[in-house]
């Protein structure tokens, strides 16, 4: 993404701030208004579960695969959850092919933390042979189009894909693992959803576009579970926020998370 110090960015910022001064946004939305959201589950047949979310022109596809692998040494009797994000070069002219950049790693880690902290799965039940074979749940976030707010889109797509995912069922007899024809739902216990706020000047707004993200001073992503508890927080951007701003932001994010939940 282009740097904030560029001339185009400075002009963009001036214009966005000017409009914000009158309480408006460039696309005519209210400060607490999301763009149109769509959610489609199951578009990919070769996955255990999948979901595609669009928020405005941002589009994220999540594929969940469940397969057998080795557990981590420190948790030999527990299944494994892995989150990975790819920014495909078709998503935006500035996205280049190659190794994952810091933005895609941050996206994967924030979604991962939300799922992990909310304890979405009983990992103890995902072990086949303690210490050597457990179910591994791969959550692959594939960004197909970028126009801001990938966090909220990815978190929504990830939990929607997990909730509809069906894993293979294996039997273990005398240390031999056999695949059965059965599948069973992953029992998803909690559903964390992320809400991202951008701060430009002194104004906070939800669901920032790519232009708003390019010029923002600070960013706050908060994930909530269905009881309104916070599961994860990520503050980004190079400006700070005051405690009063934080309180207000959390209040707004909580309301918005409840609204987002209607899409699940």
């Amino acid at each position: 993404m282009a740097s904030k110090s560029g001339i185009v960015s400075r002009l963009k910022r001036r214009k966005i701030q000017e409009v914000l001064g009158a309480g408006n946004r460039m696309d005519g939305r209210a400060l607490d208004e999301y763009r149109e959201i769509t959610l489609k589950t199951g578009p990919m047949e070769k996955t255990s579960g999948s979901a595609e979310v669009t928020i405005g022109k941002s589009r994220v596809l999540v594929g969940v695969k469940v397969q057998i692998g080795s557990p981590f040494e420190d948790t030999p009797e527990k299944g494994v959850l892995m989150c990975n994000a790819e920014f495909t070069p078709i998503a935006h002219p500035t996205f280049e092919p190659g190794r994952p950049g810091e933005n895609s790693i941050e996206l994967a880690r924030v979604v991962d933390r939300g799922l992990r902290s909310a304890e979405i799965l009983d990992f103890g039940k995902l072990s086949l042979i303690d210490g050597s074979a457990v179910y591994m749940v791969f959550v692959d976030i594939y960004v197909l189009s970028y126009d801001g707010n990938l966090f909220d889109a990815a978190a929504l797509a990830a939990i929607a894909a997990l909730k509809t995912a069906k894993r293979p069922v294996h039997t273990v007899k005398a240390g031999v693992i056999t695949l059965t024809k059965k599948t069973q739902a992953l029992k998803i216990l909690r559903s964390p959803l992320a809400v991202t706020l951008a701060k430009i000047g002194d104004t906070f707004m939800v669901d920032p576009t790519a232009d708003e993200e390019e010029v923002l001073d600070a960013r706050l992503t908060v994930a909530f579970d269905e009881d309104g508890n916070i599961c994860t927080i990520q503050k980004g951007g190079s400006d700070g926020i005051t405690t009063e701003e934080l309180h207000k932001a959390l209040e707004l994010a909580q309301v918005k998370a409840a609204e987002l939940r209607k899409h699940l």
Binding site: M44, K46, T47, S50, L61, G63, V64, K65, Q67, N84, E86, T88, P89, P97, R99, P100, F138, D140, Y142
Partner: peptide, 18 residues
């Protein structure tokens, strides 16, 4: 031209690295 497969495009999952 660049050809790339998503990690979930095949069974079993493949690494996203080219």
């Amino acid at each position: 031209c660049r050809y790339h497969m998503s990690p979930f495009s095949v069974d079993p999952r493949r690494s996203p690295a080219p």
